[in-house]
Design a protein around this nucleic acid. Structure first.
Lengths: 157, 157
DNA sequence: TATTGTTATACTCTATAACTATA
DNA sequence: TATAGTTATAGAGTATAACAATA
């Protein structure tokens, strides 16, 4: 009945922005985010990962092995959300939980070798999706876009 | 227990992006969108409108009175979602439904005078929130940002 | 038979509250 | 008493399916 794909997403992806909204930054940001998320999801599907899961792997792989809660803070998600995310990754054999040696309340979450491999492969695929997404822009404009977004996100300049 | 405000939002709004994610366009877009949404929500609160409701009013006010379904397509939402959105606006006295003269299956949704007033006031407030949001950028860079987002959203150049 | 609006329902995402174990 | 992780639960948002009225 609907013209949308079975999975998800409706949101005027085909029609393009209606002129009365095309000037609103909120509209532009939202639909840019949705468009890239769609591309990324497709690119990651062969690796059995969602964009969010890839972000979790990325955070867990960076720096020293963090506790679940530290990783949650970096990602900006709730503790309880983190539990579910790590559960999924652990079920897939990509990470392992260990009790912290000094504070046994904490879980140290480390990537398995399989997890590291998957992170590299899926990370490259996501990067490629991002490149395709910004293909309408010159390389310089694409860099400017990211710089502008970063500037606007930062708490202070 | 949580450090987040009671309403919603956790998402590392205070911490800033972790370096391992700051280069990912998906992360930047998502958090820029969330940041602006937060500002806009606060700016619209005195007018009793959400950003989404303002977008609905904007679409309904533009061009000739559309049917609910046409408006839904422009907004990129489902028919059933549109029903709820119009319900809310009608309860607030901002829009009215009429049966279409020629095709009585359709609802023509028109803004009331109160709706038009509210649209102008709230629209100005949202615009002001957007200006504050892009304040870290030069005027030119802010324009470039919007142009780049538009280019990347458009189905074709 | 197809379409518009509607209702009921289900699914996803994510947060809050309460519980366990450690400290 | 406070903290890390967990579980159960609830709320927001949005889609799908089924139904009534109209075409």
């Amino acid at each position: 009945m609907s013209t949308a794909a079975p999975g998800r997403r409706n949101l005027a992806s085909a029609a393009g922005p209606p002129p009365e909204l095309a000037g609103r930054l909120g509209y532009l940001l939202k639909h840019a985010q949705l468009g890239l998320a769609e591309l990324t999801a497709a690119a990651l599907e062969p690796y059995g990962l969602t964009g969010r899961e890839l972000a979790v792997l990325t955070v867990l792989a960076s720096g020293e092995p963090a506790s679940q809660q530290q990783a949650a803070q970096r990602l900006g998600v709730d503790r309880t959300t983190m539990v579910a995310l790590v559960d999924v990754l652990e079920d897939k054999g990509l990470v392992q939980r260990h009790a912290h040696a000094e504070d046994r309340r904490r879980n140290v979450v480390e990537l398995t070798e399989k997890g590291r491999d998957r992170l590299h492969q899926a990370g490259a695929a996501a990067q490629e999706a991002e490149s395709r997404f910004v293909a309408p822009l010159s390389r310089k404009d694409a860099q400017r876009l990211k710089a502008a977004l970063l500037a606007v996100i930062q708490p202070e300049g």
